[in-house]
Design a protein around this nucleic acid. Structure first.
Lengths: 105, 105
DNA sequence: GGGGATTTGTACGTATGTATC
DNA sequence: TGATACATACGTACAAATCCC
């Protein structure tokens, strides 16, 4: 029933975790597909393959490219939207944000 | 192909939309279930029925209470998490945030 | 320590609605 | 009219971590 409540901490954009007593660095766990897709798209934006105000590939296109379910693509896009990389216009598409909206990181 | 790019605006926590030329107030569109669930839980937090550091009902419990799919519940919880109302500890549960983390609104 | 129950995380596939083009 | 694209929603499955007896 959550007895060690003081040991909980949150990493923005990562989730909430229970602190390890020695803060042992966890090994990099396998990257979920929706994160890989998101990171790939960030790469394409950073490299200029995807340009500001131009559309990101549609959900359908990404579903086919990665051979994943649509929900997985939607989660990746949602992540990018939260971080400011892209913006979505309902029923129109998702577009690369202006460069000043990109996260510093 | 997104020709009227200047007409796009974003409402934080709502999404991105195309501005109506006369900003005609859209009639209140039907509230999606995941938003209703989220609002219900906010009410329970505000009223004190759900207290800080105490668990929010589990996904399974909410699925049964609202008779919806788990994905719908998860979207509601994700929304509350983004807004700061709750925090989630993987494999343990979701808990009401301390009051100073709540959104002003 | 073992084992089962609980809970969240990830992922798939499908369906329908609605707005845009 | 029809095709496209995103929004919402359902149901299912398995994994991983935790909790409790």
């Amino acid at each position: 029933m959550l007895r060690e409540e003081g040991l909980i901490y949150t990493v923005q954009g990562e989730g909430t975790f229970v602190a390890a007593p020695d803060s042992a660095p966890r090994e990099p766990r396998k990257l979920p597909m929706y994160r890989k897709i998101a990171e790939d798209i960030v790469q394409e934006i950073r490299s200029g393959d995807l340009q500001p105000r131009r559309p990101v590939p549609s959900e359908t296109a990404l579903v086919q490219r990665y051979e994943v379910a649509r929900e997985t693509v939607r989660r990746a896009i949602g992540r990018l939207r939260d971080q400011g990389w892209v913006y979505t216009v309902p029923q129109r598409g998702t577009f690369v944000s202006a460069e000043d909206k990109w996260p510093e990181d």
